[in-house]
Design a protein around this nucleic acid. Structure first.
Lengths: 198, 198
DNA sequence: TTCTTTGTGGGACAAATGTCCTTTTAAGAT
DNA sequence: ATCTTAAAAGGACATTTGTCCCACAAAGAA
């Protein structure tokens, strides 16, 4: 649920070191800051260096649907640059987050001139598709309780890292529904939420 | 909901014409035939020339979740070749369908040697991500009735082209739930399902 | 024809989930 | 310290959706 891509991050760090013109720049986002805003123009590709951000779509109904959580090495903005359309999601820092910015021209150039970068990009896109398909399929045919167990299995300190509202928006449910199933999970793996500590 | 990609299809047809070694081959699938089967190895990229297929994942619960319907020009198998993993979905013909097959080696070669093909591939992957994100977000925050209206708006003869069970599996609901909302839609745009014709 | 079989539609009930609202707690701001 | 705001927890009820089952009609087999 928190996507990372360390090998790609390493590669970009290396690129930046040999980038005498400083085309790849580093920035910081404070908590709540939006690095990309839905329905706006995107000029660059971004890459999380360190921190955590949520990638979400806001529907006209006002509901937010969290597509994914991004950790170190995750890339965004590339879809918009490739399809040449406005951003379809918002990227917002959940903790103080540092990230790299690669201008469109540099990005286009890397695709053309750097086969390793191109391969990374293809792998990254393909992996996003695969991961998303598996996740949504799983979400469709499992109960909230099963989905939560699976999240906790992947990220035991889920509730320490991510606010309940965000977890609910990631699962496409309400916080009320989330709270309702939590007691059923107490029997195992959530010591800090166990009934004894309440 | 039925994805097509005509410019890419044209490009592949052109490629095939200049392909003296016949590396790109054409095939036919009968109704119900599986062109790719979930959890098996994939050796080639495929491309629908003509027809209609469903792309779905089967969960351990036995439920099928239809990811997308593929029409002319839609590509599949590319994710598996790029990520080098088993197929995560099944592609099954819903009508007699003809398709092209591009062997892995040819595919890899095109990526390296043909920048136009590479650009097509990037656009196609980016577009799949964008489309899927928008669809799942929409699905999470709208009622069955709204989702159905939106499908009918996009494809007025939905019920003529696609079995109810498949529509339900595409929306992640049961046929019972689908039937339940159908009467509410009669007031507009579904002449062939109107109460007068029953 | 008569008998299956299959697909379709829907009734009745159960289960899951959302809505609304209240209370409590925690965190931040001044 | 006090006030304000945001997050968390959960009760009560409404709504949505699923499950189970039955009735009916169409299609095919003998």
């Amino acid at each position: 649920m928190i996507r990372v891509n360390c090998t790609f991050l390493d590669y970009i760090v290396k690129l930046k070191l040999s980038d005498s013109n400083s085309l790849i720049t580093e920035h910081k986002a404070v908590v709540g800051e939006k690095i990309i805003t839905q329905k706006t123009n995107v000029q660059s590709v971004y890459l999380i260096k360190d921190g955590l951000a949520k990638c979400y779509l806001t529907e006209e109904t006002g509901n937010d649907f969290i597509q994914e959580f991004f950790g170190a090495g995750e890339v965004f903005g590339e879809i918009e640059l490739i399809t040449n359309e406005f951003s379809f999601c918002t990227i917002e820092a959940l903790v103080p987050t540092s990230y790299f910015r690669i201008p469109k021209k540099t990005f286009d150039n890397l695709i053309k001139e750097d086969p390793i970068f191109n391969t990374f990009l293809l792998e990254l896109l393909a992996s996003k598709i695969r991961y998303t398909a598996l996740r949504h399929s799983y979400n469709q045919s499992h109960t909230i309780e099963e989905k939560l167990r699976s999240l906790l299995n992947e990220l035991p300190d889920l509730f320490k890292k991510i606010a309940k509202n965000d977890i609910a928006n990631y699962l496409g449910i309400t916080v009320r529904s989330l709270n309702r199933v939590l007691p059923n999970l107490n029997t195992n793996s959530i010591p800090h939420l166990g009934s004894s500590s309440q």
